[in-house]
């Protein structure tokens, strides 16, 4: 294979990996926000499905992308609100409630989805997401040796993406900024680490938790919406295909950090497709370890490794928010 062709193949692979990583990234941001408040919401899959179905339904009916996104946030946010009500106010078990939310969300999504099964994403919205706002015109530099191909490579891999992709990247930066640079972010982290201390400092623990859970749910809704609206451009049952569970793993893998989430989501996204590409290489085809079916286990295995390492090394920040999964009630005695 000639070097330019090989480089182009790599670039195309990177581009695909980025595209497939977007729902993982947005979902991870949402679940990170939720878990930072100290609540483990295992209903990510359900919320992604809720967002995907309500958003796609509205998109088909109104052809309006903004309304569709609002609907996705509203649908998933409502599911998250239900979870918050159950776990924050009614003190129900977080794990069980999260699983119930997954079942409920899948039920609503697959029922609602039935009515839009054979529809595809409206033309105007497809056009919108076909836009590549950062894609430069390289016709002038193509002939230049070295520089030309390098620019070509960068363009193909990183600059030929749609608004959703860049939106997700901006979202990561914004969430990191929120968590580490704003008062509210500091308060949220404190609530997740040690709610009693936060409470004693005058931070409204319950309000922060509701906000983070519902906000996190809304992001999960946008993550889900990407699948029918942009990626597949039509509805199929259980369209998120277990990505909600990969998100739960990813949050641990990137250790609750929105910026690391970009790399983590990209890695998991790349693992999702790399096997198929590798099989095309004659030397590797037939090798078990490069089979996509084996590679599909890696994200979960790597997450388990992170869990174990967190215990063995007792490293700060590896264990997650200090109060994750632990309920807090002020006047309990």
């Amino acid at each position: 294979m000639d070097p330019t062709g090989f480089a182009m193949m790599i670039a195309l692979f990177l581009a695909s990996a980025i595209r497939i990583s977007i729902p993982l990234l947005i979902g991870t941001l949402g679940e990170t926000l939720t878990e930072r408040s100290g609540h483990l919401n295992l209903g990510v899959e359900g919320m992604m499905l809720l967002g995907a179905s309500t958003g796609f339904f509205v998109a088909v009916r109104t052809q309006n992308v903004l309304l569709a996104m609002l609907a996705a946030m509203g649908g998933a946010g409502a599911g998250a609100l239900l979870y918050a009500l159950m776990t924050v106010t009614f003190r129900a078990n977080q794990v069980v409630t999260g699983l119930a939310l997954t079942i409920f969300g899948a039920g609503v999504a697959n029922t609602l989805g039935k009515s839009v099964t054979n529809q595809s994403t409206p033309r105007n919205i497809q056009d919108l997401f076909a836009l590549q706002p950062l894609h430069p015109d390289l016709s002038g530099v193509q002939g230049i040796p070295v520089v030309g191909p390098v620019l070509q490579f960068i363009d193909t891999a990183f600059l030929q993406h749609n608004l959703y992709v860049y939106g997700a990247l901006v979202g990561s930066a914004l969430l990191a900024f929120y968590l580490y640079r704003t008062h509210s972010g500091l308060h949220l982290r404190a609530v997740g680490e040690n709610p009693a201390a936060a409470d004693a400092s005058g931070i409204r623990v319950v309000a922060m938790r509701y906000g983070a859970i519902v906000g996190g749910g809304m992001l999960c809704g946008l993550a889900g919406l990407y699948m029918p609206l942009v990626h597949i451009t039509t509805w199929v049952e259980n369209i998120t295909g277990g990505r909600g569970w990969i998100v739960v793993a990813l949050v641990i893998f990137v250790r609750w950090d929105p910026l690391k989430a970009i790399l983590g989501a990209f890695l998991f996204g790349a693992l999702e497709i790399v096997g198929f590409r590798l099989q095309a290489i004659p030397a590797l085809s037939g090798s078990i370890f490069f089979s996509q079916y084996v590679i599909d286990m890696y994200p979960y295995a790597m997450t388990i490794l992170v869990l174990i390492l967190a215990n063995v090394r007792r490293k700060k920040g590896w264990q997650g928010p200090g109060a994750l999964g632990v309920p807090y009630f002020r006047e309990e005695r």
Partner: peptide
């Protein structure tokens, strides 16, 4: 899938 809706809600209510 409506059964999942009912199941999910019954669970929440029971919780």
């Amino acid at each position: 899938s409506l059964s999942d809706v009912v199941m999910g809600l019954v669970l929440m209510a029971a919780l």
